[in-house]
């Protein structure tokens, strides 16, 4: 059976150090994997491998059965939100999101950009230069940029970083709606409560490996934070 997102033995080394080691996972439409782990566990590297931004040392990442690297059709289905904004500070909010829409071949880029900005509640700042915005507003624009082409797979690396409560609530609402619409999500976060809020699966990464993975309904939310701390040696 073909899964929407599939990683098979994904491994990535930098020099002699293995940042990600033999990660295998599969996610179907409407699923959300919350990925927890201490700093340096390999979460961001795994996400960059899944996005096709890094070449794996071994293993493969596929979207709907297609190898991600080198396949433009597969890449078009992916949205990636990082803790870095991936925006051009000198351009306006609208120009940044419209550029993304055009590069993804969105049919009506101007309207699509306006829609994405409206969903992230930053349409009123559309003509502001990105560099003039606060970190939180830049993060909202970054999310709008990643969403403008309506990706079927969304990879989120600490998306809540810098967001105010309204921004965080808007994002949670949007993620839940996307999941309801059949999108597949991978959410990297340090905040266990936030992660479990939208997740259908939870996993813990430690020293490059997925050391624990279970379905959301199988885990005890109350004791998960304690179990996590125990697993990673008290480091969060």
């Amino acid at each position: 059976m073909t899964h929407v997102l599939e990683a098979d033995g994904l491994t990535r080394s930098f020099g002699g150090r293995r940042a990600v080691h033999g990660v295998t996972l599969e996610l179907d439409a409407g699923e959300c994997l919350a990925l927890f782990g201490p700093n340096g566990a390999g979460k961001t590297t795994l996400l960059r491998l899944l996005a096709g931004l890094l070449k794996p040392t071994a293993g493969t990442a596929r979207i709907n059965g297609q190898l991600l690297r080198g396949d433009a059709t597969a890449r078009a289905q992916v949205g990636f939100i990082s803790h870095q904004s991936m925006l051009y500070g000198a351009l306006t909010v609208r120009e940044n999101v419209e550029l993304a829409a055009r590069l993804y071949g969105v049919r009506e880029p101007t309207a699509a950009a306006a829609q994405a900005l409206s969903e992230m509640r930053v349409l009123d700042r559309a003509e502001s230069a990105v560099r003039a915005l606060s970190r939180g507003l830049q993060q909202r624009v970054s999310i709008a940029r990643a969403m403008v082409h309506r990706p079927r797979v969304l990879l989120l690396d600490e998306p809540y970083a810098g967001l105010d409560p309204l921004g965080a609530a808007t994002l949670t609402e949007m993620l839940a709606r996307l999941r309801g619409d059949g999108a597949t999500l991978v959410l990297v976060t340090h905040n266990i409560a936030e992660g479990l809020d939208v997740a259908t699966q939870a996993a813990v990464m430690h020293r490059g490996r997925v050391v624990r993975r279970e379905r959301r309904e199988e885990l005890d939310v109350g004791s998960y934070a304690d179990a996590y701390r125990e697993l990673v040696g008290g480091v969060t």
């Binding site: 931004l53 078009a76 992916v78 990636f80 870095q84 904004s85 991936m86 925006l87 993304a100």
Partner: peptide, 18 residues
């Protein structure tokens, strides 16, 4: 240099363009 600030280059690499 303009692509390195805030890793804007990643956004170009992610886009389905050659």
């Amino acid at each position: 240099g303009v692509e390195l600030a805030d890793r804007a280059m990643d956004a170009l690499l992610l886009a389905p363009i050659d």
